[in-house]
Amino acid sequence: MSFDSAFFWDSLLHPSAAFLEGLWQTVYISVVAQVLAVIIGLGIALMRRSKRRWVAGAAGGYIWVIRGTPLLVQLVLVYNGLAAAGLYTFADATLFGLVVPGVIQAALFTLAVNESAYMAEIIRAGIDSVGKGQLEASLAVGMTPRSAMRWIILPQALRFIVPPLGNNFNAMMKTTSILSVIGVEELFLNTQAVSSTTFHTFEIFIVAALYYLLLTTLWSFVQAWIESRLNASAGAPRPPTVIQRLFGGGRGAPPPAQAALPQGTAATPAEIR
């Protein structure tokens, strides 16, 4: 069977409506799930730092369970398992005039919960990287612990949180491909549909791979810009350029988070997944 270059270039440069719909689903599910994960992860990270043992223990148990079980298993348990057990069924819902299918709700919930366990450790490490003297000085001038965390600690911790957060979001966009097992019409599932109707499996999956590559590369530019702005505002060394991130080479300053994260703390998708 020969490679159909005409079909390949046509699919790459003029993707079908279904293919573009899958691409859009991949992007917005990734963005919404990551935002939710950061919010939940922040709460879990603050619980982990609590002086109350039962609060810190509950947060630790949450992280242990979520990080210790595969995302695919969690996804099937949430969408299929809860319904089979008669506990909860994800039904279509209307939000701000938009209909959100039940399968999308399950996907967002599972991705957000799974990612929040990793985000909690990243945020906690970022907070711990800020000198304790910052909090003590804030309390000394009359700030409450909550206001000190909001206005003094977290803004400084951002510089250490953003690099691993960006890496995790990059992984999130690729991880959405497993949502096809519960019928979410994201890029991978729609690519399978095109493959089954055209029988150009090799060509269309190369196109899908290139579009995934495009998404992650574009995000690398955004992440590099954000890190550069944060480092410049803090007077820190410039982070690696996009070329250094993608291809290596050059000495470039390592991302601050890599140096700041405690030993054993996951900082890249390969390490944490």
Rank of each mutant, 00 (worst) to 15 (best):
P163F: 07
I226A: 08
A137R: 09
P70C: 06
V100C: 05
G166I: 01
P240K: 13
S30E: 00
G252M: 04
G102V: 06
R238S: 15
G264H: 05
S16L: 10
P254A: 13
A148I: 11
V141E: 01
A37V: 07
H200I: 00
L12A: 13
L261C: 03
G41I: 00
R49V: 09
R53M: 14
W219P: 08
V65I: 15
V242I: 10
G57E: 13
P269F: 06
S228V: 11
R273F: 10
G235Y: 13
R48D: 09
F109R: 07
L218I: 15
A107S: 12
L165P: 01
E271C: 06
N190P: 06
A83W: 01
V194C: 02
A260E: 03
V194M: 03
H200D: 03
T69M: 03
P145Y: 11
Y28F: 04
V27D: 00
V113M: 09
G97R: 10
R273A: 14
G81F: 04
F7W: 03
W9C: 12
L261S: 13
R245C: 01
P155Q: 04
I182Y: 00
V55Q: 03
G131W: 09
A209V: 00
A106Y: 01
L214K: 05
Y118V: 07
I122S: 11
L179D: 00
Q244F: 08
A120Q: 00
